[in-house]
Design a protein around this nucleic acid. Structure first.
Lengths: 190, 190
DNA sequence: CAAGATAAAATACAAATGTCGATTAGACGG
DNA sequence: CCGTCTAATCGACATTTGTATTTTATCTTG
């Protein structure tokens, strides 16, 4: 709703946003997002309901806001700082992502079960953007001649995230190393 | 909600379900799903609101119902009947899927913009299941030694669908042949 | 076709949603 | 520190949601 820089917001606004997101996180650990009402969230956050509507149009928008922050954290954590090939870059990112989500399984599950899986969509766009950027810049620029970096980025990010979703949702998941070794195998060396 | 065989439902039930789904399709072409109320849908469908709740718990459940039907159609249309290798199988399926969604862009967009992109999630599960099944049965069973078919299926289906989403959402999409030639390149020959 | 089953409609209700305008409290700059 | 600006609160309101109960209409089966 608000499109401001987020940092130069009024102190009061940042405070209520923190209270609301915090309340949402707490409540999502108790019961599925679907069953939460705006009234519930406001009660928990000790924020007046009209104030909620001054910030977000509905509860999904609050969730979206929360997940955008999470996504930023994910990108920051997972993108490798050093890699000598696109292949290496991607494999390291995949390994990092696996670790990142393994520790956030609870929140992740809660979001998936909420029906609106905005998380992976947000993440997909952000990650594909990041990878695409790398593929079209100096270090890796000429490593893949004739390949559209946007297509390559979407392809591999989509593959990885789909695998990740499946792995996180599986009641009896394949061992992590098996997953990684398959990834290693599916990605060409050139 | 109802888990019956769908065919042997009471005539009256099938009728109201058709009316409701039809009304939803119509309304989604007028404005985003989010802005539709159960009351709206019932008014358009000429079905009493309490009857709606006898069939579905909320409007997302109706959407889910609609998309499940669409997904069945998609699988039926896209899965190749003949293919002599996993590689060939997948490439043909991808080509078919591209054509299928190109003709349903409007509905697809409407669903994506609705916030709940249950469509692609449903489709991902169904398609991955289908591919996995093929990869673990006679014709292709031994084509990929040492590969877990579930992992391979998720990987390639995820890649394809992510690309598809990007392609459909792009205001100025890459030519279809370019997309397909990249796919051809990204999938190993073995 | 008639009897019994059951889905749809009608009515009513408590709770939640989304939006007002008016008032109070707090943040920020000079 | 004080004046101004603006966010948060309050109270109220029309609408929507989800459910329960009763009545009416329609399908199915023998």
């Amino acid at each position: 709703m608000e499109e401001k820089k987020e940092d130069n917001l009024d102190l009061r606004q940042r405070k209520t946003r923190r209270q609301l997101t915090q309340a949402l996180v707490e409540l999502m650990e108790e019961r599925p997002f679907q069953e939460l009402s705006v009234t519930d969230i406001c009660r928990r956050a000790m924020v007046h309901r009209t104030t909620f509507y001054a910030h977000f149009n509905d509860k999904q928008e609050l969730l979206h806001y929360l997940l955008t922050q999470l996504e930023r954290e994910c990108i920051a954590v997972c993108v490798p700082t050093d890699a000598d090939s696109p292949r290496q870059f991607f494999l390291t990112a995949a390994r990092n992502a696996l670790a990142f989500f393994k520790e956030r399984k609870a929140l992740y599950r809660a979001c998936l079960e909420s029906g609106t899986d905005t998380e992976t969509r947000l993440l997909e766009d952000a990650a594909a953007g990041e990878l695409c950027l790398r593929l079209s810049q100096p270090p890796f620029r000429d490593a893949l001649p004739g390949v559209d970096p946007r297509i390559a980025a979407r392809f591999y990010v989509g593959a990885m995230l789909s695998l990740l979703r499946w792995w996180l949702a599986s009641p009896d998941p394949v061992p992590e190393e098996v997953l990684l070794s398959h990834l290693d195998r599916f990605i060409p060396h050139s």
